[in-house]
Structure formats: C-alpha cells, structure tokens
Design a binder for these strands. Structure first.
Lengths: 340, 340
DNA sequence: CTGAAAGCGCTTACAG
DNA sequence: CTGAAAGCGCTTACAG
C-alpha cells in the first residue's frame, strides 16, 4: 500500500490539512510541526500523488507531443528541443507517434485531452484545420509545428531555404536541376525551387520533378526515373538529407560520382550530414530551436494569452562537399545531334 | 469550463452514477438511456478525465520511459519499440532524458512515481542498483534495459556480439586490432574483444584500447592516438556505429582508405550503417525488439508477477564494406628494421 | 435498471 | 497556527 497524507496525519496525530500544509511549505504553519511532518513523510516513504493534485489544481503539468514518425532524425531533433524546454519549465512530456495516419493523429490528440494535458504540440500534422473547428471537443491549446495555415505555429521558412540551395546550384553553373519532393510536406520547397529557376529564366521541366516518401528508400527509387530522362539532370535537390543519402547510394551503385558527375543537396542538416561521405550540402533547419519555441508559445497559450504571433525562423544554407560545378558537356552526345 | 459527468446528469435529469454507467457500457443499464446519454455527452463535448479515473482505479495506464540521450539513434530505436508496444496495449508513454547524469536520472524516476506511472523503463541507467534498495520509495515496477545486475532486465548479449566482429577481423587476417571503447557502457564489448583475441593466442596490447564518449566526436578524437602507435592497428573495432563513423571521418582526413588501408567496424546497425560509405560492417542489436520485450516484461510485473526471467537477446554480425583483409606488410618498414 | 453515498488523494477557503 | 468541511471528476458497492 502506498502511503498517503492521511496515513501521515494519523501517525503524527494531526489533521490531513496540516500535513498538506507542512508538505507544501505553507506560510502559516509552525516550524516545528513542519519539520516533524516532513521528516515523518520521508521516513514513511511518502511520494505525493500528482494525479490527486492535478485533479484539484485542474492542471497536470504535462504537455502532449504528437510526432508523426520518430524514425526520421529531423523529428527527433524537434523532440529533443521540446523535451528540454519542457523540463526546464517543470513540464513532463507525453509522447505519441501517429505515423502519418490522420485517424491515429486524431485519436492521439483526443487521448491527450482525456489525460488532461495542459497543452499539445503536433509535428507533421495532416489535419491541422480540424483543430480550428469550434466543435472538435479540444479545449486545450495546440501548437502545430511547420503549419502554414494554423494560427499557433512555429515554422521554418522552407521556401526561402529551398530557394537558397537552388540558387547555389545555379551559381555553380547547373541548368538541369532535378527535385525529389514529397507530396505532403514538400510544397514549400517545391515553391522555392520554382521561384529560383524562374528568377533565372529557366523554364520548369516537370519531368525533372519526382515524388518520394521522404526517406532513404524514396531517394533510392527516385534515381532510375531521373537518370532515364532524355536530358538527365546535373544536380538533384532532394527533399531532405535522408532522401539525399538514398539518392547518393543509388547513384553510387550506378558508378556516378558525387559531386564530380552529379551534385546532390539535402535539407535539414541532420548531424549525419556533416559526417557523410561526401559531406552534404544542405539547408539547416534549427530543429531544436523550433521545438523550444513551440514550447514557449504553448506556455503562453496555457497562461491564457489569446494572441501569440506565429513564428517563422530562418533556415541556413550549409555548403559542403556534395555539390560542385557540372561536368563539361558530353561532347559525343553533342556531335551525335544531342543538345545540352 | 469543461463539461463533467455532473453536467450531463443535470442536463439529462438522471444521477451521475447513471451517466457513468451509460458512458462505460455498464451491463445493467437500459438501452434507451444509454444511447440517450452517450449522444448527449457527445453533443455537450464531453471528454472523460482519465485523471479522475486514475485516482479511483489506482492505475494511470501510463509508463515512464527514462532515456539517457535521444541524440543517439540507438536509443531512439529502443524508444520506438517501447512506444509502439505500449500503444498496442493502450498505455501512454511519458518520456524524460537524463543525459548520463545520475542525479537527473534519480529525479526523473522520482517524478515518474509522483505521477503514478504504472511502471518504468530505463535505458542507459547509471544507478540501477539504487532500484534494488528496499528504502528507495519506489513502489512501481522498473525494467532496466541492458543491465547485467538488475533482475528485471532485457539485454543483448554484447559480449558475444563483440566476439563475433573481432573473430571476423581475425579471420580476415588482422592481428593488430584496436578497440575504441566507452567507459560506462563498453565493458561487455571489451570482454568480447579480449576473449576473441585470447582464443587466437594474441596478447592484449593495452595501447590499442582507447576510450571515447560513445559519439561521433569520440571516434574522431580516438584516431590520432591510435595512429601514433609504434605499431598502428590494421583494424579498429569501434564502440558503436557513431564512433565508427567518427573514426572513418578522421581516417579519411588523413588519407587513409577504409577498408583498403584499415578496416573499421561498428556496433548497433543503425539505419544509417547500411547507407554509409563505406557501408558499415557492424553488429546488429535488435533495438526495437528489445524495447518491445521490455514493455512485455513490464506489463507482467504490473500485473503482479514477481518472477520474470531476465531476457538476453542475440546480436547478429552484419558484414558489409568497411572491412577487408589487411594491406600487405610495409616492406620499407621491415627493411629499415621494423617488425610487423 | 437507477440513485445516494462513500471514497480515490489531495487542496483550500472558512472558522476558530 | 490548526481542524472540519467541501470539492476536484470520476467509480462502485449498497440499497431499492
């Protein structure tokens, strides 16, 4: 049997109220009994129940974090930022994954509400607009990471990030630049890609845009499609570092050298990006900072603030070894009638 | 104001007990009122409070997971296994990191108890023996992953794993095999390393054993020490994949080729290991399975079982591209009086 | 089938 | 400074 405040009260011959006050350092309590009770509690192995405390305080000191998929280190980075910031404010984190399944996402958020978390952070949400609906039963503040439409959001300007890498490729002299994108989460990067090319008066070639699942496997499957193009790309701008790594693997298997034969760029700047071979040119998303800011924003909302400004953080182009100028044009191909 | 069972009772003109029964599909309740109440609850936006429910049930359907450091993908793998298995049993997971700090570890476990988790899983524990002490105030079952001394543990046989890779290196013809270890968590691997060498009658050369922090950085710092050896190694058995990647980076910086000039092995078989260049020869730890088994064991203990068998899972040697036979002996060195 | 009562472990006005 | 009472949101014997 776990010992409760009542047990201590009985043992000490005082009322439960007094025990409660002693344990909580209440101002109006005699120093003697306070010390005595605290010591007694210690001896008796008392561990306060935050369950009971939450019930009366109407506050659980818990935030629910719904992460779409922990197997992507990018999300782990967010999680680390969230957990660290939450711990610094004495909040505990309850974690659930929903693996890109909208039904599971909804179930997770509902479960969070049943558990009376004080607030919720969602990354990789597929149903962010649901949280705006007035009849959704969700009465706790929700912050969505990287949402374009949801009002309480902290995001990274991925349009700009994409534009920057593609500019970098353009500056190196590339003209046939492919993009491996991801349907759900890749729209901003696609925008940035288009904008950069248009700024340089390069027409968009839709055959150079292929979709993937956003993981290493997706990068691998994208390559054959790209290489079978009548005019294959000299550079590939990938959805993220994971797909870049997949792409590089598939390229290497076909004896292409990166970056000598073809340049490849990532996105995210995972820890691994710097230590991969070749080290990845990529766009750094400050994921831990994003996580931390999301907690800050959520804490404001929990405090009752109604008007928080959506946050937009800046990404940073990181140039490493996976990009270079395109190889010289293929002379044989030109002579045989091709055009580069 | 969030709506409670009382609000629904008032609205429906019945007692709270009836509402509770209707909501919980209690057997003895008229179908009519059940349907009516459930619908009313829905309309009123009722979300049950598991806080309140936990208080009476003395069960929170929550397990606390203390992970030492989420920035190591190995621990993330464990976490994924744990979270998945927990979700399958309708348990939520509350997650805290303690970053190899024993004080924080203890504080986290205490906090879990305050929150009345039903059980605890700890990975990378530094104070596992504390949990055995009778006066520690911890009254919920605790499973420790990869513990050698704690009775409720699921672990991987790392001695054997280490032995296997070192055997592999030996079979390739290596005789000068270095080991980059980690003080806290590397003892088993060190054992396996020693055993394998002894089995082949190769004396242990302590100058070939260097310690590191268990991350990429540690691999990088280990290399200069190893290369400055009077008789440098032809193969390096690393604590884990991360250190192997650090080692390979440091080697490459010095123009060593892996595996032609020197072989390098990892441990863990992170996802990245297969896609690294060169693809890592390593020892697979079935981390998701370990996480899942830990949940299974914990659930047994929560159910009240007192005698669960510690589990020891087998690792698996995965041979890829980072190992090869040693280069031919350095003739110049031999001629100049050296000995290999 | 339904309601009144007690209780889970705590906190907090309200009296004294 | 301390105690008795009420209450947080639920569940569950106990009566009826």
């Amino acid at each position: 049997m776990t010992v409760s405040i009542k047990d201590i009260a009985k043992e000490a011959g005082v009322s439960p109220s007094t025990v409660s006050r002693a344990l909580n350092n209440h101002p109006r309590i005699s120093e003697d009994t306070k010390v005595y009770i605290q010591q007694l509690a210690q001896e008796m192995g008392y561990v306060p129940s935050v369950i009971a405390r939450s019930l009366v305080a109407n506050r659980s000191a818990t935030i629910g974090v719904a992460i779409t998929d922990l197997s992507d280190p990018y999300y782990v980075g967010l999680m680390i930022g969230i957990e660290t910031a939450a711990a610094a404010h004495n909040y505990q984190v309850i974690l659930s994954s929903f693996y890109r399944d909208p039904d599971r996402e909804l179930a997770v958020i509902y479960d969070f509400h049943q558990r009376r978390v004080d607030g919720v952070i969602i990354t990789g949400s597929y149903i962010e607009n649901t949280y705006l609906a007035p009849d959704n039963n969700f009465f706790k503040p929700i912050v969505v990471i990287n949402s374009l439409t949801y009002p309480y959001s902290v995001a990274v300007d991925r349009v700009k990030g994409a534009q920057q890498v593609v500019e970098h490729l353009l500056n190196l002299g590339h003209r046939r630049i492919a993009h491996v994108t991801q349907l759900r989460d890749g729209m901003e990067r696609l925008d940035g890609y288009r904008t950069a090319l248009e700024n340089h008066n390069i027409p968009i070639d839709e055959s150079l845009i292929v979709t993937c699942d956003g993981g290493i496997a997706g990068g691998i499957t994208a390559v054959p499609e790209l290489l079978s193009n009548a005019y294959p790309p000299t550079a590939i701008f990938c959805f993220n570092d994971l797909t870049a790594i997949g792409v590089i693997n598939a390229l290497r298997e076909r004896e292409y050298r990166v970056p000598q034969d073809i340049s490849v760029t990532g996105f995210d700047d995972l820890t691994m990006a710097a230590y991969y071979h070749p080290a990845l040119t990529t766009v750094r998303q400050p994921s831990q900072l994003v996580g931390q800011r999301a907690v800050d924003m959520l804490l404001q909302l929990i405090k009752g603030r109604k008007s928080v400004e959506p946050q937009l953080l800046l990404p940073e182009l990181v140039i490493r070894k996976s990009t270079a100028s395109p190889p010289p044009p293929d002379v044989e191909k030109i002579l045989s009638g091709g055009d580069v």
